[in-house]
C-alpha cells in the first residue's frame, strides 16, 4: 500500500480514458439523446397542431353542411312556389280559353239567329205582299199602293 510508480501508470490510464470518453463516447451518445428529445418535442408539437387543424376542419365541415342544407331547403321552396305559379297560370289560361270559346259560340248562335230572323222577315213580308197582292189585285192599283206596302215591309 505504498506509493510507487503505479501512480504514474494509473494517472496516464486515467487521462487516456477521459480523453477517449470525451472524443468517442460522450458526443455521439449525448447527441443521439438530444436529437431524439428534439424529435419527440417536434412530434408532440405536430400532433398538437394536427389536433387543432382537425378541430378547425370539423367546424368548417359542419358549417358547410349547414349551408348546404339551407340551400337545398331554399331550392325546394322555390321549386314549390314555381310549381304553384305554373298551376295557377295554367288554370287561369284554361278558364279564359273556355270563356272565349263560350263567347264565340254565343256570338255564332246570335249571328245565326239574326240571319234566320232576317230570312224569316223577308219571307213573311214577301208572303204578306203576295197575300196583299191577291187581296188588292182586284181593287187597288198596284203602283198606287206601293208606298204603303214598302212602309209595311219596313215595319215588319
Amino acid at each position: 500500500m505504498n506509493i510507487n510508480a503505479t501512480l504514474i501508470g494509473q494517472a496516464i490510464a486515467f487521462a487516456v480514458f477521459v480523453w477517449f470518453c470525451m472524443k468517442f463516447v460522450w458526443p455521439p451518445l449525448l447527441g443521439a439523446i438530444e436529437e431524439r428529445q428534439k424529435m419527440i418535442a417536434d412530434g408532440l408539437e405536430a400532433s398538437d397542431q394536427a389536433e387543432k387543424d382537425l378541430a378547425v376542419a370539423q367546424a368548417q365541415a359542419a358549417e358547410q353542411l349547414k349551408e348546404a342544407k339551407a340551400q337545398a331547403a331554399e331550392i325546394i321552396e322555390q321549386a314549390k312556389k314555381r310549381a304553384n305559379v305554373l298551376v295557377d297560370e295554367e288554370t287561369q289560361r284554361g278558364h279564359s280559353e273556355r270563356e272565349k270559346i263560350i263567347a264565340q259560340g254565343y256570338a255564332e248562335i246570335d249571328a245565326e239567329r239574326n240571319r234566320a230572323k232576317e230570312d224569316l222577315r223577308k219571307q213573311v213580308s214577301a208572303l204578306a205582299i203576295a197575300g196583299a197582292e191577291k187581296i188588292l189585285a182586284r181593287e187597288i192599283d198596284k203602283d198606287a199602293q206601293a208606298d204603303i206596302v214598302a212602309k209595311l215591309v219596313d215595319e215588319l
Partner: peptide, 27 residues
C-alpha cells in the same frame, strides 16, 4: 518508487477498457 502494482494496473485498465468498449459500442 519504481515498482508497479501489476494487479491494480491490470484490473483497473481492464475495467476501464471494458467501460469504454461497452460505451463506444453503444455510441
Amino acid at each position: 518508487f519504481w515498482s508497479w502494482h501489476i494487479d491494480t494496473l491490470l484490473w483497473s485498465i481492464g475495467l476501464g477498457v471494458l467501460f469504454l468498449w461497452v460505451f463506444t459500442n453503444a455510441a
